[in-house]
C-alpha cells in the first residue's frame, strides 16, 4: 500500500475548563490518544455521538486547534507544532468542508469573491485565470455560471454546500476534512452532495476524512471507519469488517440503532438500548469511559483503562479483547458475567 497521506499518532486535544476549588486547572479531554492513517484516494469515516470529539479531531488536524500531545504527519512531514506562517504550503493541499452551509460562507461576499479568495490568499494565477477557474469550479459542483455575482443568502442549503465544496477545490487539494457536510441538509440533497464528493474523489484521487453521525452514509462512502466515544477511538478498522461484525460493545450498540428500511427485518432486529449517562469529558475517570453504560462491564473495566487491542486487523479499545481475556474465552470459559450483580454501585461518578 502507498505511503499514507495523513498519519495521526496518539493525538490529544485538551481544553481548559476553568479551575477546581483546589486551584488545579480542570481539563476537558476532547480528543484522547487517537491514532489512524489515511492513504491517498481513501476515505476514512469517523462516527460517534454528539460531543464525542469528532469535530475537534477534524479541526485539530487542519490546525484550527493546536494539539495538546501526539503527532500529525501530512505526507510524511510533521505539522504538529508548525507555525501558521509555515503551514501555507500544507494548507494548499489540506482543506476542510464545514457542517453548516449557512455559516461557512461570508454573507457579504459574492460567490465569485468566495471562490477567488483562496487563490488570492495564495497569490496564484492572474486575475483572468482566476475568473476562468471560478467558472470551471462552479461547473464542477453543478452550479450555473451566472451564479457568480449572487450572494450566499440567495442559495438553498444544498447549493451553498456546493459552493463551499467548490471553495475547497479552488486550490486543488489532496486531502479534505469533511466535518458533517451533509447533516444540515435534506435527505434528498444529502445524496446529491455525497455523489458529488464521490465523483470529485474519483476524478482527482482525493482523500477524505468524513465525519458524520449518519452510519448508513458513512458505510456507503468510507473505506475505513473509526468509532469515537468521549474522545477515545473505540474501534478502528475496514468499514466492511466493522459493520459486518462489530467488536466493541459501543459499536454494537451504535450499529443496532441504524434504521432498516424493511419493516420486517427491522422488527426481527434486536436493538441494544444503552442505559445510563455519558461521563463528563471534564477530568474523566481513569477507567473504561464506556463502563457505566456497557452491557458487558466487568470489574476491571471500572479499575483500569482498556488497552488498545489488535484483533484481526482491527484496533479495539476494550477489555474484552485483551490477549489474556481472549485466551480465557478460547478455553470455553465465559468470564464476562463473573462480576457481582450490583456492579453499578461502585461506578465512579
Amino acid at each position: 500500500m502507498a505511503a499514507p497521506i495523513l498519519e495521526v499518532a496518539h493525538l490529544c486535544k485538551y481544553f481548559d475548563a476553568g479551575r477546581a476549588v483546589s486551584g488545579e486547572t480542570k481539563k476537558l479531554k476532547a480528543v484522547e490518544d487517537v491514532s489512524f492513517a489515511i492513504s491517498p484516494g481513501e476515505t476514512m469515516g469517523l462516527v460517534g455521538e454528539s460531543g464525542c470529539g469528532k469535530s475537534t479531531l477534524g479541526r485539530t488536524i487542519v490546525r484550527i486547534h493546536d494539539p495538546t500531545a501526539g503527532r500529525i504527519l501530512y505526507k510524511g512531514e510533521d505539522i504538529t507544532r508548525r507555525k501558521n506562517k509555515h503551514l501555507l504550503p500544507v494548507r494548499r493541499s489540506m482543506q476542510m468542508i464545514f457542517q453548516d452551509p449557512y455559516a461557512s460562507l461570508d454573507p457579504r461576499c459574492t460567490v465569485g469573491d468566495i471562490l477567488a479568495e483562496p487563490m488570492a490568499i495564495h497569490r496564484l494565477y492572474t486575475k483572468r485565470e482566476r475568473a476562468s477557474r471560478v467558472q470551471a469550479l462552479l461547473e464542477t459542483v453543478g452550479l450555473k455560471p451566472d451564479h457568480i455575482r449572487r450572494y450566499p443568502h440567495e442559495f438553498s442549503g444544498g447549493q451553498r454546500q456546493r459552493i463551499s465544496i467548490a471553495r475547497t477545490l479552488a486550490l486543488d487539494p489532496e486531502f479534505i476534512v469533511c466535518d458533517e457536510p451533509i447533516s444540515a441538509l435534506d435527505v434528498s440533497i444529502q445524496a446529491q452532495i455525497i455523489n458529488l464528493l464521490e465523483r470529485i474523489q474519483d476524478e482527482r484521487g482525493l482523500s477524505y476524512l468524513f465525519i458524520a453521525h449518519d452510519l448508513g452514509m458513512v458505510r456507503h462512502i468510507s473505506h475505513k471507519i473509526g468509532v469515537m466515544y468521549l474522545g477515545h477511538m473505540m474501534e478502528y478498522g475496514q468499514t466492511a469488517d466493522v459493520y459486518d461484525n462489530p467488536y466493541h460493545p459501543y459499536t454494537k450498540a451504535l450499529l443496532s440503532a441504524v434504521p432498516v428500511p424493511d419493516p420486517k427485518t427491522a422488527r426481527a432486529k434486536q436493538r441494544i438500548v444503552l442505559k445510563g449517562e455519558v461521563f463528563t469529558p471534564i477530568d474523566p475517570p481513569a477507567c473504561c469511559l464506556f463502563a457505566n453504560r456497557c452491557p458487558h462491564v466487568m470489574a476491571r473495566c471500572r479499575r483500569t483503562e482498556p488497552p488498545v487491542c489488535h484483533v484481526a486487523g482491527r484496533r479495539v479499545a476494550c477489555h474484552l479483547y485483551t490477549p489474556d481475556f481472549l485466551a480465557l474465552r478460547r478455553n470455553g470459559e465465559n468470564p464476562i458475567f463473573t462480576d457481582p450483580p450490583d456492579w453499578r454501585a461502585d461506578i465512579p461518578v
Binding site: 479541526r59 487542519v62 484550527i64 503551514l87 501555507l88 494548507r91 494548499r92 482543506q95 476542510m96 464545514f98 455559516a103 461557512s104 460562507l105 461570508d106 479568495e117 483562496p118 490568499i121 495564495h122 463551499s164 471553495r167 486550490l171
Partner: peptide
C-alpha cells in the same frame, strides 16, 4: 466562515 478563511491560509 472565519474558520474556513483560516483553513484556506
Amino acid at each position: 466562515y472565519a474558520l474556513a478563511a483560516y483553513v484556506l491560509g
